[in-house]
Computed example of a mutant assay.
Amino acid sequence: MEKGKVVVLEERVPKLKERRRQKANRRLIMYISFFFLFILCVLYFQSPLSNVRHIEVKGNDHLPAEQIIALSGITKRTSFWKVKEDEIKQNVEKHPEVKNASLEKRFPNTIIIRVNERRRVAYIYDRQKFFPILENGYILKKHTSKTAPSDAPILVNWRKGEDIQEMTGQLAQLSPSVLNAISEIHYTPNDDHRDHVTVYMNDGYEVSASIHNFAKKMSLYPAIVQQLDPNVKGVIHLEVSNYFTPYEPPKKEDDNEETEK
Rank of each mutant, 00 (worst) to 15 (best):
K252S: 05
S102H: 03
K252H: 06
L220T: 06
Q67I: 13
R21K: 15
R120G: 09
K217P: 04
Y31Q: 14
A209S: 07
K84H: 07
E2S: 11
I164F: 04
I154M: 05
E97I: 13
S210T: 10
G204H: 06
N202I: 08
R27A: 14
L49S: 10
K217D: 04
D229E: 03
E239P: 10
I111V: 06
D61V: 09
L28C: 10
I154W: 01
V232I: 09
F244W: 05
Q227R: 15
R12G: 04
A172V: 06
N242R: 15
K129A: 14
T198R: 12
Y205D: 12
Y138V: 08
H196V: 08
L43S: 02
R19C: 00
E87H: 00
A65M: 07
E258W: 10
N242K: 11
A223T: 13
G73R: 01
Y221P: 07
D203G: 14
I211Q: 00
D229V: 09
D203M: 11
E104L: 06
G4R: 12
P250G: 15
E10I: 06
N109H: 09
L220M: 15
E239L: 09
V92F: 02
I39M: 05
L140D: 15
N25Q: 15
D86P: 01
L43R: 06
M201W: 07
I113Q: 06
L16E: 11
S150P: 12
N51V: 00
L16C: 13
F36T: 09
R159P: 05
K58M: 09
P153F: 01
R21M: 14
N136V: 03
N116H: 09
T245I: 12
F36N: 14
P250T: 12
H237Q: 13
I164G: 02
Y31R: 14
R159I: 07
Y187P: 03
K251I: 12
E117A: 09
Y138H: 14
I139Q: 15
T110Q: 15
T110W: 01
P96F: 02
D203Y: 15
Q90A: 05
I236H: 09
A181I: 04
N213S: 07
V98L: 01
E258C: 00
T198C: 10
L238T: 13
I69F: 13
E162D: 13
G234F: 04
Y205I: 04
Q128R: 15
D195W: 00
E257D: 11
S47Q: 00
A101V: 01
V156Y: 05
M201D: 10
R120T: 15
K251A: 13
G204I: 02
V13Q: 11
H196Y: 09
V98Y: 07
I164L: 08
I88T: 01
G59F: 06
K94Y: 00
N202C: 08
E248W: 03
V98S: 06
H186W: 08
E248Y: 05
E248L: 08
K82Y: 01
N190H: 10
K89G: 00
K261F: 02
P14M: 03
I139S: 11
L228G: 09
N180H: 01
W81P: 03
T188A: 05
Q46L: 10
L134G: 09
R53K: 08
K94I: 00
H193K: 10
S208W: 03
